[in-house]
Design a binder for these strands. Structure first.
Length: 460
RNA sequence: GUGGUUGUAGCUCAGUUGGUUAGAGCAUCAGAUUGUGAUUCUGAGGGUCGUGGGUUCGAGACCCAUCUCCCACCCCA
């Protein structure tokens, strides 16, 4: 049988894992620095936990798990009916499918908060680094199994949380050495726009359409809005809003004049507050840009909407590498009201692709083992093991070649694994209680006393 | 899910209008060198040409299906 893995999934070799861990470690360190606590949730959730949270499209992208032992079921007629139904429509009954792989980390977190609310103190800051699955058609930068690195604050409506998260974004990409632009919008502004043109029921259609402005241009967006049933009058009212230009400040001021309803004004105020506070604190490699065409399809956002794009001459990457927003009532459906949260999610796999493209992985992340002990035979092995134990105690990574192979083989192993030092201990060294140590980068070697080993490596 | 595209050794790729036994470089392994890697020389292993059908005297090449890769749409980390 020919081995293969499912479409859109990948194996990761040692070098890839070293680089992936560099990303995870960087993000994790910043999360911890900001006081977030780690949790994990199961790979699978009950299907009912996930359905309806991600919009119609999201429901289609859930990996559903077929119930087990269907062939032993006593209700095969019901099963047959349920199956016929799934062939007709997108909905599943739990007779056939009661579980699904998680689609993101935010909804499982909301479920977690409701289930464990009595064991938590609010506001609760949590981080979570786990993989998620989407039954999307794979493309570059789009995988069916990928990692998200989430930080969320739940139980606080303060905009200081938004600011905290934006600073995290700045710090993470600063540490990774990547230039980015944070795009910021607010769902209340979008709601205000919908109210202004008297089309509250079409808010999702409107946001999806104007989100495409960059991609398909003005004319096509207006055509799409018309096709979605907006009147010409409404579209005329919409035009000056969509095409607002200028810097953050002037854009928001113009909006403030046009969108004269409560919810719109509230959204603009929130945007202003965040931009004014956080703008001066961001590093030069991290720009912030208010963008009312930024929609994001997730149904549950109610306030801030955040998206991060690469803004770096070394990369052509256009997909977003981080996203997030505020959700006022995600826990409500699980029975816990008045629990507002806000969070962001780093797409580790896309960040990996960008860092590869921009050549931003540090070289030294590839090194691990410091010293290889050549294996000359049984008498020498014991001596080496003792020395290796000493090195390990000093937190220096060292190994002995497990076979008594030819020197060429053993030296080649050190070379292939980029091990910087090779320790040679044969009968002569054994007798003299010394170590011949070779530095692979220069080819130089010298003989040192056994007791000098740890210091020698530490100094090098 | 819709439309398009790709697939030959572990990797990067040749392979003529369809014609003997499918090649190269790199990598791997072995030897030159039984205590010295990355450079040199010699040799070896490695392929059901993505898979399954079809056309043909004959298919890596042509046709169909299917899987995979990549691209656009949709959507998104």
């Amino acid at each position: 049988m020919k081995p293969s893995i499912p479409r859109g999934t990948r194996d990761f070799g040692p070098q890839e894992m070293t680089r992936r861990n560099y990303i995870f470690d960087t993000i994790r360190d910043v999360f911890k620095l900001h006081g977030y606590l780690q949790i994990e949730t199961p790979a699978m959730e009950n299907l009912s936990t996930l359905t309806g949270k991600y919009g119609e499209e999201g429901d289609q992208l859930l990996f559903k798990i077929l119930n087990s032992r269907l062939h032993e079921s006593k209700e095969k007629e019901n099963l047959q009916k349920a199956f016929d139904k799934t062939l007709q429509s997108a909905t599943n009954t739990d007779v056939l499918t009661e579980r699904a792989l998680r689609y993101d980390l935010t909804v499982p977190f909301a479920r977690y908060v409701v289930m464990h609310q009595n064991d938590m103190t609010f506001p609760f800051k949590r981080y979570q680094i786990q993989n998620v699955w989407r039954a999307d058609k794979p493309q570059k930068g789009r995988y069916r199994e990928f990692y998200q690195c989430d930080a969320d604050v739940i139980g606080s409506t303060s905009l200081l949380n938004e600011i905290d998260l934006l600073l995290i974004i700045d710090e993470v990409f600063g540490k990774l050495g990547l230039g980015v632009t944070i795009k910021l919008n607010n769902r209340k502004v979008l709601a205000g726009i919908a109210e202004l043109i008297d089309a509250q029921d079409k808010i999702i259609d409107i946001t999806v359409a104007i989100d495409k402005l960059d991609k398909i241009g003005e004319q096509k967006v207006l055509e799409e809005l018309f096709a979605k049933g907006l009147s010409n009058e409404a579209i005329e009212k919409l035009k000056p809003i969509i095409f607002i230009q200028g810097n953050n400040e002037s854009k928001l001021e113009s909006l403030q004049k046009i969108i004269a309803n409560d919810i719109g004004q509230k959204g603009i105020e929130e945007l202003k507050y965040i931009v004014e506070k956080v703008g001066p604190m961001l590093s030069s490699n991290c720009k912030i840009e208010t963008d009312i065409t930024l929609a994001r399809g997730l149904n549950y956002y109610t306030g801030a909407i955040i998206e991060v794009k690469v803004n770096d001459s070394r990369s052509e990457f256009t997909s977003s590498i981080c996203g997030g927003g505020r959700y006022d009532d995600l826990t409500g459906i699980f029975g816990l009201a008045n629990m507002s949260g806000v969070g962001i999610s780093f797409g580790a796999d896309r960040i990996y692709d960008v860092l590869m493209e921009a050549n931003l992985f540090p070289n030294d992340v590839e090194f691990n083992t410091q010293v290889l002990f050549v294996n000359f035979g049984e008498a020498e092995q014991q001596y080496c093991l003792t020395l290796i134990k000493q090195l390990h105690s000093a937190n220096i990574s060292a190994v002995m070649f497990p076979e008594q192979a030819k020197m060429k083989k053993q030296m080649g192993y050190a070379d292939a694994n980029k091990i910087p030092f090779v320790a040679l201990i044969g009968s002569q060294e054994l007798q003299d209680q010394t170590i011949t140590i070779k530095q692979m980068s220069t080819g130089n070697q010298q003989c040192i006393a056994k007791s000098e080993l740890v210091n020698f490596i530490l100094k090098s």
